[in-house]
Amino acid sequence: MSNYVLLGTNAHKDLKVITARSKNYGDNVMHAMTFPMEFRDVQSSYPIFFCKDPESGQFYPTALFGLEQDQNLFLTEDGWDAAYIPMMIRRHPFLIGYQADSEHEDGKRPVVSIDMDNPRISESEGEPLFTESDEPTDYLKASISVLESIHRGHEHNKGFIETLLELQLLEAFTLEVTLNDGSNNQLSGFYTIAEQNLHQLDGDTFDMLNKKGYLQAIFMAVASHSRLRPLIEKKNALLK
């Protein structure tokens, strides 16, 4: 379970965060939410699909790391073997939370929280959050900047998904994978860009998608499918 508290200089002065990548630190996730702003980096390593939040049924784009629950095929003895790690993974143990603030446009203000029950939290090893003079360290500054990007990413995802649904550009798919040992694995519950519908859009719609910054993201998601093969190969390699 998580135990998020507001991050404070006094309360968390001596806190450190372990940045190593391992199952012990909760990195054994099958997939993680991603955002069009990082699609360029994500698609170079991972397939990008779409899935539903089980709590709300709302769609979000997600980067696939494994073929079953709790499986991350990029995790090795030496850490996370990929050129890019998605922001929603890098954010831990921080979270962007909201405080009521009448001066802010939505009546709420984003604030930084930290999960005190996260196994990354330490007092002995890892990156410190604050300097001797109580200033945020570069590590904390970088983490906050990730949170800010995630905050913008959530907003961007909303419009992106709405547009995809409106244009019927998402479709469910089931991936049947036969591994080298002959076992059949089924990946279901994921959605992908409906390419047939995409190719039938008219010029004005493409223009709209382009202006909103969605067009590139759509094609990056399509291109990312080529990362599925290497993912399956990783799984096959484990069978040996």
């Binding site: 709300s56 049924g57 709302q58 649904l165 998402l170 959605y191």
Partner: peptide
């Protein structure tokens, strides 16, 4: 209540 808040997806 969830449908009231979020709606159901068509797909």
């Amino acid at each position: 209540e969830k449908i009231t808040n979020y709606g159901l997806q068509k797909i």
